[in-house]
């Protein structure tokens, strides 16, 4: 661990109760507890959140942009997953 090049932690903030955490940015820190404190200092100086997650950046596995097409293909040909696929006669209510 070099002097300032500590591990990177991705920061996710929950802005208000009941909504999902959203990516805010990243911080460097030697451990999780300090990552949490750094994240608070850097990303919530103006009441941006009520809960913070910090996740080691190297623990995140991401899909690759080059494979975007084939990776998401399985859902593209299934319009029947959307409610608008179905024709319901006018006059039928609550559907």
């Amino acid at each position: 661990m070099s002097d300032t090049q500590w591990p990177v932690w991705e920061v996710f903030i929950q802005a208000s109760p009941g909504i999902s955490h959203k990516h805010a940015g990243s911080v460097h820190a030697p451990d999780a507890e300090m990552a949490l404190q750094n994240a608070r200092d850097v990303y919530s100086r103006r009441s941006e959140g009520m809960n913070i997650w910090v996740v080691p950046a190297n623990a995140i596995t991401a899909s690759s942009p080059e494979d975007q097409g084939s990776f998401f293909e399985p859902s593209n040909d299934k319009p029947y997953r959307h409610p608008t696929f179905y024709k319901i006669p006018e006059g039928v209510k609550y559907l």
């Binding site: 661990m1 002097d3 500590w6 030697p30 451990d31 300090m34």
Partner: peptide
């Protein structure tokens, strides 16, 4: 520098 060194020492001790 000493602050950063202390942070690392603390993290290592805790681990």
């Amino acid at each position: 520098k000493w602050v950063r060194e202390a942070a690392v020492a603390y993290a290592t001790k805790r681990a």
